[in-house]
Design a protein around this nucleic acid. Structure first.
Lengths: 118, 118
DNA sequence: CGTATCCACAACCGTATGGTTGTATATTTT
DNA sequence: AAAATATACAACCATACGGTTGTGGATACG
């Protein structure tokens, strides 16, 4: 998968988003990341590996512990992607919202239009 | 899956991101969304359904055509999520970057430290 | 009418995900 | 040296993904 796609995929899981959330408050060993979850250590280990593959975090051995830290670059890539689109939507926002509203009421509007044109 | 997770999952596929990209330039029927891809109509139909399940797009029947339009709210949710984290990272950015740099060179630093301390 | 067009549903296939359990490895502790 | 701790690897399972082919249902066209 492409890099951005891997990042999105990694963030699609709620457990992994909670891990990311925890790491915004500073690095932590895997055991501490696992603590809040009712899940095996191995499951968390796999989630961490997934986040690492997506370059969202980096690990470092410190004795027996494997300290994890966020990689801000990957998160920034997501923010930049979303931001780049947000500029476009904000510009067309009223137009799109109006269109969606029209879609919802299109049947009624058509009926009215037909009646009005007779 | 939770809503935000579904949105991230939908955006993890490059084909679907290209479809979203196309739709930022205005609504389009499924056939037009399918045109750029070397893929069956049914495959695109499934991608569109996936995007619709994630509330990233809305569809409207217009004769034989099914017109698709972006739902700005879902995209905005992604932008807001990423933005909320960005504030945290930006604040800690130098600190985190420094930490990651230290992680990369930790072995060397340890060796030097050990040698220096002898 | 019949036919072509736009689209979705269904079944299938290979692969990945998210979890489990069991086990192995490296390190610290005693 | 032995035991405990922190973590990963491997095999397994059910489910979902991303694609295919085949088919059917609306709608427009001649």
């Amino acid at each position: 998968m492409d890099t951005l796609g891997a990042t999105f995929a990694a963030l699609s899981d709620p457990t992994r988003r909670l891990i990311v959330d925890r790491l915004t408050r500073g690095p932590a060993p895997v055991s501490e990341l696992a603590r809040p979850f009712a899940m095996s250590q191995q499951a968390i280990s796999k989630h961490v590996a997934y986040l690492e593959r997506a370059h969202l975090i980096q690990k470092r051995r410190a004795g027996r512990q494997h300290l994890c830290a966020l990689n801000p670059a990957a998160l920034r890539a997501v923010a930049l992607w979303a931001e780049s689109y947000r500029r476009v939507w904000e510009k067309n926002f009223q137009r799109l919202d109006a269109l969606l509203e029209e879609m919802k009421t299109s049947k009624k509007r058509r009926r009215i239009t037909r009646r009005a044109s007779q």
